[in-house]
């Protein structure tokens, strides 16, 4: 029972992270490979402010989101001239910068020793935690669904499909991108905090390339610019490796097998059907 509950909680957290990633990547066309660094920032903000400074739960959550949002603002401003694969590389290298800072600022982040995170009393129980995650997932999914269906969401699609045309029609494409990525980073930052509480421990290696591949796999299997697809894909992608758990294998084999499975799935979906299950647009 505990196992099922924690798996479902994990799916809930990843679903929101993937949905907010899709807002930037799928709906707006910002190839942002530093999404995991926003998650890391949120998780570490929560770990430090809640456990060490004893701030209240709500304040910590909001601050985690805000910090990620501000960093996203800086990133999108710094990368404003990059397009296509150069943007992907710029954001990826930014992810590495954040990763190495977290790893090296030992006095603040604990470096490679990681940080232990206390859970607030009211979500100490697995069921309560699960209910909170479901609540957050429903709220954020609802907000994202409203955003992408609003006129603002349509404009984001215009920026993705033809940025020059959107500009020619007098739309401030840069501002639209800034808004999209800041919303995406804010939500991810908050979920980073939730993830830190869920794991009760944060370590820099939780936020390296591997997590990026997991999230990318989810979003690409689900399809770009499709919230429903992303939700379905989160279940598929997180449940498949669980099969490995029931085979009696030593953990030294299970760990790599999981990663191998993810990378093969990602490669296959890119090779065979890069639009994913419910994707509406192609990657360029």
């Amino acid at each position: 029972m505990y196992y099922v509950l924690s798996l479902l909680t994990q799916i809930g957290i990843y679903a929101v992270i993937a949905l907010s990633f899709n807002l930037a990547l799928g709906f707006t066309g910002i190839i942002n490979l530093s999404h995991i660094s926003f998650l890391a920032l949120g998780a570490y903000t929560t770990a430090i402010l809640y456990t060490q400074f004893g701030m209240s739960f709500g304040v910590v959550m909001v601050l985690s989101g805000l910090l990620s949002g501000c960093v996203a603002l800086f990133l999108i401003y710094a990368c404003r001239k990059l397009r296509g694969d150069y943007l992907a590389l710029g954001t990826l290298s930014f992810h590495f910068v954040i990763y190495s800072f977290i790893r090296n600022l030992e006095t603040i982040t604990g470096g490679t020793r990681g940080l232990i995170v206390d859970r607030p009393a009211f979500i100490n129980d697995g069921i309560n935690f699960f209910i909170m995650v479901v609540g957050l997932a429903v709220v954020f999914t609802f907000i994202l669904a409203r955003i992408v269906r609003s006129p603002f969401g349509t404009l984001l699609g215009a920026v993705r499909d033809d940025e020059k045309l959107a500009r020619a029609l007098g739309k401030d494409s840069q501002l639209l991108k800034v808004k999209a990525i800041v919303i995406s980073a804010f939500i991810t930052g908050v979920m980073g905090g939730v993830l830190a509480f869920f794991l009760r421990y944060v370590h820099p290696d939780f936020f390296f390339l591997y997590e990026l591949v997991t999230i990318l796999t989810i979003v690409i299997i689900g399809g770009l610019a499709s919230l429903r697809g992303t939700l379905i894909a989160t279940f598929i992608v997180l449940l498949i490796p669980e099969i490995l758990r029931f085979v009696a294998l030593p953990s030294s084999i299970i760990g790599p097998s999981r990663q191998i499975l993810y990378s093969i799935i990602l490669l296959l979906i890119l090779l065979i059907h890069s639009r994913g299950i419910l994707g509406k647009v192609d990657l360029h």
Partner: peptide, 8 residues
Amino acid sequence: GNVILLMA
């Protein structure tokens, strides 16, 4: 596109 190749 190049982005797909990068992800691959």
